[in-house]
């Protein structure tokens, strides 16, 4: 796998009337590099290639992209996990407008995140020290708070592709449940009532692409199921 053939999505709004795929030959020197390392090598060949990156260790969520058909983080995806037949195809996250090359406009994704009021709400006066929380109650936040907002899940979700303006999407709903599940949050009823309409939550069809692609191993589908249960219990 010394010479890797990489096909990458290119689009510069100033010069290109339409996007196209560009072929690169990358010499990996036989190493099992991360996909992000391969992008760096490609950028040395063509400094114009645009992609986002920051922490390079899978915690900042900058470099979500589509690698040989599957969403993931380039910085923690080794070539041995994705390359097939010596070939790698890189595309931006599906379903969001492309700004340039691998860089997408995340606006709609962030808007859905903001919609669920992603902050703790508790109107009782705060004590002089911390609010107490039992380890068991704190355990309920595991698998929820670790989300890095990389958008791999929402941009792999057909329901989000169809209704990005109305369906909150797996990332936003996971965060919604992160606050619903927090013993310190008192806005449960308000949070649930915001999700009652046919789109915000109920557009989830249980396809589970979100679970398959989450680079942090989180399970938005389960969180969505929990919210459904809470809504049901609230209604009866």
């Amino acid at each position: 796998m010394s010479n890797l053939q990489v096909s990458v999505y290119r689009y510069n709004p100033e010069t290109d009337s339409a996007p196209y795929m560009q072929e690169f030959q990358v010499d990996t020197k036989g190493r099992d590099l991360m996909v992000l390392d391969v992008l760096h090598l490609m950028k040395e060949q063509d400094s114009g290639l645009a992609y986002r990156r920051s922490c390079r260790e899978g915690v900042c969520g900058s470099d979500g992209m589509n690698m040989n058909g599957k969403n993931g983080l380039a910085c923690i995806t080794p070539l041995s996990d994705v390359v097939k037949g010596g070939k790698l195809t890189l595309r931006p996250l599906p379903g969001l407008p492309v700004i340039r090359d691998m860089v997408v406009d995340m606006g709609m994704f962030y808007k859905q995140y903001e919609r669920i009021q992603p902050y703790l709400q508790n109107e009782t006066p705060a004590p002089a020290i911390e609010r107490l929380q039992s380890p068991e109650d704190r355990d309920k936040l595991d698998g929820l708070y670790e989300c890095i907002l990389c958008a791999c899940c929402s941009t792999s979700c057909p329901s989000f592709w169809w209704n990005p303006d109305k369906f909150v999407g797996p990332a936003g709903l996971l965060q919604s449940y992160r606050f619903l599940a927090d013993s310190r949050d008192t806005a449960t009823r308000e949070r649930l009532s915001e999700l009652e309409d046919p789109f915000s939550l109920f557009r989830c069809r249980g396809i589970m692409n979100c679970v398959a692609v989450c680079p942090k191993g989180l399970n938005p589908t389960r969180a969505i199921g929990k919210i459904r249960e809470m809504l049901l219990a609230d209604a009866t």
Binding site: E130, R131, Q133, P135, D137, R138
Partner: peptide, 14 residues
């Protein structure tokens, strides 16, 4: 903590 930071906890809730 009041803002919501999900700190790990001791058995006494602190």
């Amino acid at each position: 903590e009041h803002m919501g930071l999900p700190f790990s906890r001791f058995d006494n809730g602190r």
